[in-house]
Nucleic acid binder design. Structure first.
Lengths: 214, 214
DNA sequence: TAGATTGTTAATCGATTAACAATC
DNA sequence: TAGATTGTTAATCGATTAACAATC
């Protein structure tokens, strides 16, 4: 998945991937009006080890817990939000307004996670997205230029695989630094650009493994 | 991501996730007419260690490579395909024919990866999928029953999060054993059922980490 | 108090990488 | 032959888990 390993931070990749899941569970608790939660309780619900939970939370939270009570749910939510940049919404562009692109455009949850798609690009006037998101869809030619002008750092690629590399190049030309690639292809990028592949085949491989010999 | 850790197999989860990526690169080589490839060459292209590549491939391939030449591309493709079950297409159902569901329905690549979506379910006659995939969309009431009758083992959930648990229960009632969950919520399932969460927030967290302080 | 929970240090586990002899 | 590559064994690295004293 991760192409580039040069990220520096106090937290491990594994822990980073668990944080959004703690966040989601904590939001659930918050909605239920629960004010404190212990590490063992979180661990049990999420099928994790309690020491791991404590370490993960300690790495992003300043407050810490109280013996016999646990940690404050609001504080944890605030600290994870902050660490993951949820309180600092970044603008992104999306290229390819077919079914998948439209699905992402209509997903309103991104903003809660610190990302907002401000423009989409597609050349096909008949593409699915054109019907639902007409006002934010621009022709592909404007891609690089608009990215530069709006100072966009995140590009989302949802075009068919044969067009992905070209789109990727245009995004980089426009100054994009992180690419979320949904096309099932390997993109070649210069050093310093992060590509994150959302690869269905990888997920499917893991899923299928559970069914072998059943 | 992975809820259930009881999978038994000779291969590690990490290696399993790399296999589809080797496969994809090998298919590219095959298309270019290249007949043999060395582990160091694969490693270089995919930013991996060459020993790791050799071990990964050895764990699924019978043939092995030849000093100074490497391995046969066709043989590797065949062995990975076989290991990942690509030559043994499994039938799946999809629930929720909105944008995301339609995107998955229109993705023809799944069959190459050993999965075929044979039916989709949605109650809304105005859903996006209804326009494009009318003939394979059934009302939700038929879900459990059809799964049982067709002996379906894989269910894909692409409904909004408030409906996900209910859909999940219906799938399990119908005998589904593996669930690919695209709804941003934690599903509660009995022991023995595998849930694989495709969580955009997790991916986004990793992606954003690369942009912090930029 | 007793006992649940905390945070930390040490042990374990598993995956990656280095080293090396064998092969074509 | 020389050198690239193989497969395997040993060392390293990193993450998880166990053990434990401190706290409310």
């Amino acid at each position: 998945m991760t192409e580039n390993k040069e990220m520096q931070s106090a937290i491990s990749m594994q822990a980073l991937r668990r944080l959004p899941q703690y966040y989601s569970y904590l939001k659930l608790l918050e909605a239920e009006g629960i004010e404190t939660i212990s590490a063992p309780a979180i661990a049990k619900r999420m099928n994790l080890n309690d020491v791991q939970v404590r370490k993960d939370l300690a790495s992003v939270s300043l407050s810490g817990g109280k013996p016999k009570k646990g940690s404050n749910v609001h504080d944890l939510i605030r600290d994870i939000s902050h660490f993951l940049g949820y309180d600092n919404v970044r603008e992104a562009v999306l290229v390819g307004a077919g079914h998948l692109g439209s699905a992402l455009l209509s997903y309103k949850g991104f903003e809660e996670y610190g990302m907002k798609v401000v423009a989409a690009f597609d050349n096909d006037p008949d593409c699915v997205g054109m019907k639902h998101f007409r006002d934010m869809i621009y022709p592909m030619q404007k891609l690089s230029n608009l990215c530069t002008r709006l100072n966009i750092r995140i590009g989302i690629i949802t075009v068919p695989k044969h067009a992905a590399q070209e789109v990727c190049d245009a995004l980089i030309l426009g100054g994009v630094q992180a690419i979320w690639n949904f096309a099932p292809t390997h993109l070649l990028v210069p050093k310093g650009i992060h590509v994150q592949n959302e690869n269905m085949a990888v997920s499917l491989a893991v899923l299928s493994q559970y069914l072998i010999d059943v």
